[in-house]
Amino acid sequence: MSQWSGKVMHANDLDETYTSLCRTMTGLGESGATLFLARLALLALARSSDAAAAQALIEAAAAADFKS
């Protein structure tokens, strides 16, 4: 699997986005977080340029489990 070589968010923006995401999930609680993450994943995937790009994201997220 290849590394993402396109445009990425600036580190500071990513940091703020990450915190916002965590706080939103905290507010929803553990029971609501799974559905929330599913929606978020779908929205992000739908914004991919094409099916291959979306498939690459799915595979990357799944592959991260190889160590855990």
């Binding site: 590394q3 990513l14 940091d15 999930m25 905290t26 977080a33 991260a64 489990d65």
Partner: peptide, 30 residues
Amino acid sequence: EFMAPPSFAFELMRKAVLSLAALHPEVRSL
């Protein structure tokens, strides 16, 4: 919040970051 996650969400997201970071440099800044 990264070093001592204050909720399940920060804990879960940190695990996501750490498990992605070896292969995905774009999340390492976190």
